[in-house]
Design a protein around this nucleic acid. Structure first.
Lengths: 139, 139
DNA sequence: GTAGTCCTTGACGTCGGCGTCAAGGCAAGG
DNA sequence: CCTTGCCTTGACGCCGACGTCAAGGACTAC
C-alpha cells in the first residue's frame, strides 16, 4: 500500500507519516517509481504510535514500542524497554496529577477567599478603593 | 526602580519584563535617559503574573488580574473578570485531571497485561517469535 | 580616559509535531 | 492530449514564553 492509504487506514496524514520517517520511526520500501510502499506491519506500527500519542507520550517515547514491533514481537509492549517506558510514564503521570490537584486546591481556595471578600464588599461596603499607597512609591 | 531591580525583586528576568510590556501587560514610565522606571505597584503586578503562571495560567489569562490591579483594586482577584478566570480554570483543571487519571488507569492496565504475558513467556515459553504474518502483506 | 555595569532596540533561536505551500513527476481514464 | 489525482522533495509557518546575541548609549568609579 502507498502512503495515502496508510495514512487513511491509520487515521492520520501523509505529512505525519513522512515526519515519522524523518525521525527514523518508520522505514518505507520504495516502488520502482519512487513511491513509498508499506505493509500491514507498518500499519501496526503507526497505530501503536498513535495510541501512545493519544496517551500523551511524545514521539521519542514511542520508539521502543516501534523497535519492538520491528523486531518481530507480536505487540509493541512485548519488550522490556517498552515496559520501562510504561513505568516511567506512570510515575510522571502520578507526579503531574498530584501537582494539578494541589494547584486545583489552591486555585479553589483563592476563588473562595476572593468571593468572600467580594460579598463582604457589596452589601453596603465602600466603593472600590481606587488609590494605591503613594508613600513608598519609588522604592 | 529600573528594570534590573524589578526583575530581581520579582524573581524573573529583564527579558521577561520587556516581553510582558510587548504584550501590553506592563506599562513602564521612562526616565529622561530612556530607561524604564517602575514602582511598587508594578512589582505587585509582576508578582501576580508569576503566581498565576506557576499555577499554569497562560499570559493572556493573567490580563484581567493585572487590569484589576491597575484599576486600583487591592488584589488582582478583586474583580469579577478575575473570578471568572478562576472558575474557568477550575473547570479546565478538573477536566484535565480526569483525563490524566483515565490515561493513568489505561497505561497501568497495559503495563499489567504486558507484564503478565512477559512472565508467561519466560518460564519455558518459546523464543520471541521474530516473524510476522507474511500472507496478507501488500494489502 | 576608560573600565565596568547598567540600559536600549532589534532580531533570530528554541522546542514538538506537524500544516501548508511550491514545483514538479507518474499513472490512469476519457 | 489533457485532466485528475496520486506521489516526490524542500522549505517556511505556527504556537508560547521567553533565551541569547549584537551593536550601541548612559552612568559610575577610578
Amino acid at each position: 500500500m502507498r502512503i495515502g492509504e496508510l495514512a487513511e487506514r491509520a487515521g492520520t496524514t501523509t505529512r505525519t507519516l513522512r515526519y515519522y520517517e524523518s525521525r527514523g520511526l518508520l522505514q518505507a520500501r520504495r516502488a520502482e517509481n519512487g513511491y513509498r510502499t508499506y505493509d500491514e506491519g507498518d500499519l501496526r506500527m503507526v497505530r501503536q504510535i498513535r495510541t501512545l500519542q493519544d496517551f500523551g507520550f511524545d514521539l521519542e517515547e514511542t520508539r521502543p514500542f516501534v523497535d519492538c514491533l520491528r523486531a518481530g514481537h507480536p505487540a509493541g509492549d512485548s519488550c522490556p524497554a517498552s515496559l520501562a517506558v510504561y513505568r516511567r510514564k506512570l510515575g510522571e503521570l502520578d507526579t503531574l496529577i498530584g501537582q494539578l490537584q494541589s494547584v486545583r486546591t489552591e486555585v479553589g481556595a483563592q476563588l473562595a477567599r476572593a468571593e468572600l471578600e467580594a460579598s463582604a464588599e457589596v452589601p453596603g461596603g465602600p466603593e472600590p478603593r481606587c488609590e494605591l499607597n503613594r508613600e513608598d512609591e519609588d522604592r
